[in-house]
Write a protein that binds this DNA or RNA. Sequence first.
DNA 1: CATGAATGAGTATTCATTCAT
DNA 2: GATGAATGAATACTCATTCAT
Lengths: 190, 190, 190, 190
Amino acid sequence: MSGAQERPMRADAARNRARLLDVATEVFTTRGVGVPTEEIARAAGVGVGTLFRHFPTKEALLEAVLVRRLETIADQTARLAAEADPAEAFFDCFRLVIDRSSGKSEFTQALAAAGVDAHATLRESSTAIRAQLAELLAGAQQAGAVRRDLGLPELIALLVGTSTTMEHLGADTPARERIFEVVFDGLRPR
Amino acid sequence: MSGAQERPMRADAARNRARLLDVATEVFTTRGVGVPTEEIARAAGVGVGTLFRHFPTKEALLEAVLVRRLETIADQTARLAAEADPAEAFFDCFRLVIDRSSGKSEFTQALAAAGVDAHATLRESSTAIRAQLAELLAGAQQAGAVRRDLGLPELIALLVGTSTTMEHLGADTPARERIFEVVFDGLRPR
Amino acid sequence: MSGAQERPMRADAARNRARLLDVATEVFTTRGVGVPTEEIARAAGVGVGTLFRHFPTKEALLEAVLVRRLETIADQTARLAAEADPAEAFFDCFRLVIDRSSGKSEFTQALAAAGVDAHATLRESSTAIRAQLAELLAGAQQAGAVRRDLGLPELIALLVGTSTTMEHLGADTPARERIFEVVFDGLRPR
Amino acid sequence: MSGAQERPMRADAARNRARLLDVATEVFTTRGVGVPTEEIARAAGVGVGTLFRHFPTKEALLEAVLVRRLETIADQTARLAAEADPAEAFFDCFRLVIDRSSGKSEFTQALAAAGVDAHATLRESSTAIRAQLAELLAGAQQAGAVRRDLGLPELIALLVGTSTTMEHLGADTPARERIFEVVFDGLRPR
DNA sequence: CATGAATGAGTATTCATTCAT
DNA sequence: GATGAATGAATACTCATTCAT
């Protein structure tokens, strides 16, 4: 149900596609979405034509990057949810989502896309993550670890916002930890 | 208290400058920074030439918009700080800053600019607001209303992040209120 | 009712616009529609930006060229129609339309556009020319100089086709004259 | 009588070549010459590589299409010339050539190619058709059915032009018939 | 001072053609 | 031989900025 390849796809083509995704992720994350396609192609060691063969549009490339991010997170989130007790699962997941967030506000966009509706491809993977977040939230609320009046939209908005907060703190680990404390304290009932 | 005028400046010139700032604020806020300068000029009822006479660069225009925002906030913040008791002042100010946040992520940028060091012009007004925020924070902490381990950088980052959170909730007032509760609860000691 | 300038338009702007139209006409006519916009701009001694300021689209430029051609023809046609007797007017006009046709099949397109429907601007001037042709045709038919069973569509198609015929004869004047004889003979009743 | 095959050529290769020619003819005729090679290949059920193996250039493909058209016409023309009396043969052939004309101006090009000297490959088949047309014309002229002052160039140009005329009339059969009457009347002596 | 025409570097995208699989 | 992935030159169009009117 996730990323099934229609046909095997030639080895080099797959390698190029992967390389393009990696480079694009890196570049979009660190330098924003404004970077020319040609530069991305060059950095991936392919011609522009190849980039556009794999992703018919710059937007499609961005979308693919976001989808992959979301899928990665969804996978890890799922693993967490299965292992820990509800409360721990919820807070660990919150951390995980935030920690996956890196550089620029690009990831913010990805998460935002999970909240708002986007293109078809994105919607699928964002739906997956939304479902998992909803489940985790419900579990934590039933376990009495999180305020009952919070809904999924607030949770998502809070994830996006906290991600932004962290971006502005950079690598200052103690400060980041204090923010986690503030938010987690605030999330608990009472 | 606001950008000193070198020479008297003709009345119409001043009017044009003001109009440009207003329009730019509106446009940047609602439609993002990507809007062509020409369109801003037209909306302000002047030619592009005039725009570039007042603001030598598009970036300079954006900067001016941000500065004015920061100044406005600083003014209101100052008023609040003078009137209420420290705790109330702090939280009221937090709300005020967030509520001034509207549309797009433009305002978030303004807040971000207060955190990071940007161009010279910005630095002046951001310094002002930083000073006030620092004072308010200290007051609230001494009054025992806010955790003592939080520094100014965390506060600013939190403002930026919460602003982002709110953007994603849009006009859902009850939800926004719940976010305030979460953050404010989290800010309090213990 | 023809090409009214909204506002005076600066002298240099008008000159550039005219130069662009001239160059485009020349270039499209002799080398076809495939010629890069940049080249047209360079040949007109302006930057691409100027070209696109005057004609927001390559298609718009082509359209403008065609319109001007049609207008020119319509003007001359009108003059002819007013002076001569119906039969002479009709045949003179036929010649005139064909003789205005030069190089490539670009003019064919222009005439075709008069037959089929095109963009709004084109339609206006093509309507004008169609009306005049219809009038001339009717006059010649009433004067007994042209078969009564021919309609306007056939006339236009014949103009386009004869224009194509002439293109393939190039500058061979006697041959062109023979074609005129063939077509004109064929047009007469019986 | 048609392009000699150097070596036997494998059965599937021959089938591919034929299929490509068919598809290209169809596509060029209905949608013009601008259609991407890749699309033609796909429609023919082969990869682009195969297309370029058979026709080293897009232009070569177009040329092959035209050659085949000309050959077909030449064949039918030859048959007609052998059967009827000179006058009838001439006019029937004229009709046949025109009626073979379908969609877009692609066929017009083919005819035009018979008039002008194009690439080597084309020259061969166009020479054949030119010879036949010359013979038919001479026959009709000696039979007193066509003006004596017309040469082969005029005839070819007239064929091309009339083809264009017909294109613009589309499927309006009565109108097409009237055009034939006009042209045929005009072609007769006096 | 204001205007808006001119500029031209910059960008996404297409497509004929080549070549590794 | 066949395939389709890779290539990259080419092209229409945009927009910040300058400067003649």
